[in-house]
Simulated assay, not measured.
Amino acid sequence: MRRWATFLTLASTVALTAAAPAAPVYSEADFARVPKLDAHVHANRDARDFLRVARKDGFELLSINVDYPDFPPLATQATIAYKMHAADPKRFHFATTFSMDGFGGKDWTAQATRAVDAGFAHGAVAVKVWKNIGMIAKDTAGKRVFLDDPRFDPIMAHIQARGVPLIAHQGEPKNCWLPLDQMTTDNDRTYFSEHPEYYMYKHPEEPRYEQLMAARDRFVARHPKLAFDGAHMASLEWSVDELASFLDRYPNAVVDLAARMSQVQVQSNANHAKVRAFFLKYQDRLMYGTDLTDSPPDPKARAQNPPATGNFAKEADDNWRSDWRYLATSLSQPIAAIKADAPGLALPRSVIDKIYYSNARRFFHLKG
């Protein structure tokens, strides 16, 4: 019944949109002059290249520290974030995190609390939890840990008391549980081919997609006053209807679009009006993000999502301009990840301003 109600609401929005006069939209030429904020990046290199290209293209950045084996150690990520924030506090923001090492032990909560407080002391505006919770991490007794585990309650209460949002990457794209030839995007095929430890189709003994989403939903329901950012479209990137239902159920939640634009484009190519209506209806709950990652050069580095090219400044500029063309204009463009052209959504300027800037600044309590 809830899905049917969501469908009817989206359908009525489509009808109203079709009947309404066209709102002013931006052009490609407006890209660099409009204030924007990429609310999901990873600055893993002690260099100013990321800030330079962000400044040129009119972006602020939210860099997210995460306990990811392909990234530098957490202490190194923290040092880089502190330095870059100090160098340009109005343009470079960051999220801190904590390690899952020793979870379930008597000292873990105190250690996690010290870790996030150190980040807050240096200016962190959010805390990140990663997909290792649910997919990898085990407690000191060797049992798999899920986000709804009540042993997280003290650290979450501490984060909430500080008035800081939680960013949660839970699960993976639904493609992760499909054979390669059934995946909807090439970027997912490449990423999971090179990260078999996260490719759940190859691990039927591991938790299913539905289990991970259910644990995440129980967590959000149990912490209704904790501001919650579902990273990567809350891993509901495959269906704007499912994402609409999630947002309707949990008013404390927002989502970012990081590394999931191609899945949105698959849907808009199938039903352009419905996807555009979704963006219009939930314009206050969506934040632009890319997952762009500036890491030290590594000849053995595996595929990232979005793909790394070896020329980071061009990679960032190309990603940002492609997404702007899709979201802000009606122009079509070839999208390699889906082997098709994707016409733009031409969202009104007021909606673009929210998704690209004001939603993130409000949600993360950014000043200045």
Rank of each mutant, 00 (worst) to 15 (best):
N44A: 12
P89C: 11
F94W: 12
K83F: 01
F363A: 07
H365K: 15
A95K: 08
A126F: 08
K225V: 00
K274Y: 12
H272S: 01
A227C: 01
G58I: 04
D229R: 00
R302A: 14
K56F: 04
S358Y: 02
H158D: 07
R208T: 11
R151S: 14
T184V: 10
K274Q: 15
A259I: 01
A346N: 10
P89K: 05
Y282D: 10
G104P: 07
L243K: 04
M135I: 05
D88N: 09
L366N: 03
P150Y: 10
L166G: 04
P207D: 11
S99N: 09
R151P: 06
A110M: 09
W324F: 12
I133L: 14
A328E: 04
D88C: 07
A253E: 04
D107F: 00
R222N: 15
D57R: 11
H42T: 05
D284Q: 14
I155N: 03
L61P: 01
Y282Q: 07
L347C: 12
G104R: 03
Q111R: 13
A29N: 13
G104K: 01
S358P: 05
A161L: 06
E172R: 05
N44P: 02
P21A: 13
A39R: 02
Q265T: 09
V275Q: 04
E194V: 07
K143S: 14
H122Y: 04
A253S: 08
P334I: 02
R362M: 06
R162T: 08
D256Q: 08
K174E: 15
M1K: 11
Y199L: 12
F279S: 05
A258M: 03
V240F: 13
I80H: 00
D101H: 08
I155D: 09
V266S: 09
L61H: 01
A214T: 10
A87K: 12
N311F: 10
L16Q: 13
A157F: 06
F92P: 08
F120E: 00
H158P: 06
R114W: 02
R45P: 03
A126D: 06
I64K: 04
A110Q: 12
I335Q: 11
V127Y: 01
V275T: 13
F98H: 09
L257H: 07
Q77N: 10
A87W: 13
Y26N: 08
P179I: 02
W320H: 13
T96Y: 06
A277E: 05
V125D: 08
L10R: 00
Y201D: 00
H203V: 06
I159N: 05
A231G: 10
K90Q: 12
A168Y: 02
A244H: 01
Q170F: 14
V116K: 03
A313V: 10
F278Q: 01
K225R: 15
I136K: 15
K202M: 11
S12G: 14
A336M: 02
P348S: 08
N305W: 06
P348T: 06
D217L: 01
R2F: 02
R45W: 11
P35Y: 03
H203R: 14
P334N: 04
L166N: 02
A121G: 04
